[in-house]
Simulated assay, not measured.
Amino acid sequence: MFQINTPNLTLRELSDADAELILLLLNDADFLRNIGDRGVRNLKQARDYIQTGPMIMYRQHQFGLFKVALTDGTGIGICGLIKRDSLDDADIGFAFLPEYRGKGYALEAARAVMVFAREQLNLKRIVAITQPENLASVKLLEKIGLKIERRITLPGETIELLLMAWEASSSANSQGL
């Protein structure tokens, strides 16, 4: 199974065994407010979410959301790349359990995903979408080299989001990696 190791974390592909972590994350109040309600309310729905989202994305794109765990194996969140039909480029995303926020883990994981995207996938542009008032996410995205491009509304949605982007050509040494 694919894995990325950092000094404090292990990132790996999600599996059915991660359903409990996904259930907790997707029902966290901050996830619901900042990312949205995915309608996952039990372990079966969490396993279905993993199988019909991240697992398909791994097969189609060689990337997806990864489980983020401490070196002792404790699952603390997710971080990775998503390919949305409504965006031209891979989109970096992350979500962490409340007790692991503000400790630098999201930044460490996001930096590792950016290195993977550049060096393994050879991506030349990576985007992110976030609510403008989600300042913690905006700041983290800026730390890994993304810059605000414009405001967008995704198809079928009504909420205006910030589209942030990193491009290889314009930020050779400025991505904070």
Rank of each mutant, 00 (worst) to 15 (best):
P132D: 03
A109W: 00
G102D: 04
F96P: 04
I152E: 00
G53W: 14
D91A: 07
D91W: 11
Y105A: 13
F96H: 11
T130A: 10
L123I: 09
I56N: 12
G80Q: 08
P54K: 00
L141N: 01
L24Y: 11
A46L: 02
N134P: 00
G64Q: 03
T71A: 10
Q62R: 09
R118W: 12
M114Y: 05
K124N: 12
L87N: 05
L11D: 08
Q60G: 07
I4P: 01
R47L: 13
L140Y: 01
I152N: 05
I148S: 03
L177Q: 15
I76S: 13
V115A: 11
Q3W: 07
N5H: 12
K124I: 06
R47F: 12
E160Q: 02
A172D: 04
T153N: 15
L97M: 02
L154C: 07
E13N: 10
F31Y: 12
L81C: 05
P7V: 02
Y100A: 05
L26K: 11
L81M: 01
Q51A: 08
L146R: 01
I159L: 08
R41I: 10
L32S: 10
Y105S: 04
L163M: 03
T52R: 14
D30W: 00
R38T: 11
G156R: 07
K67N: 09
R125W: 06
E167S: 15
L177I: 15
R111P: 13
D85L: 12
H61V: 12
I159R: 00
Q60V: 10
A29G: 01
S174Y: 07
K124G: 07
F116Q: 02
N34H: 07
P98V: 15
D28T: 04
R41Y: 09
N122V: 14
Q45C: 01
P132K: 04
Q51W: 08
E160I: 02
R38K: 15
Y105I: 10
R33E: 04
P98H: 03
D72G: 01
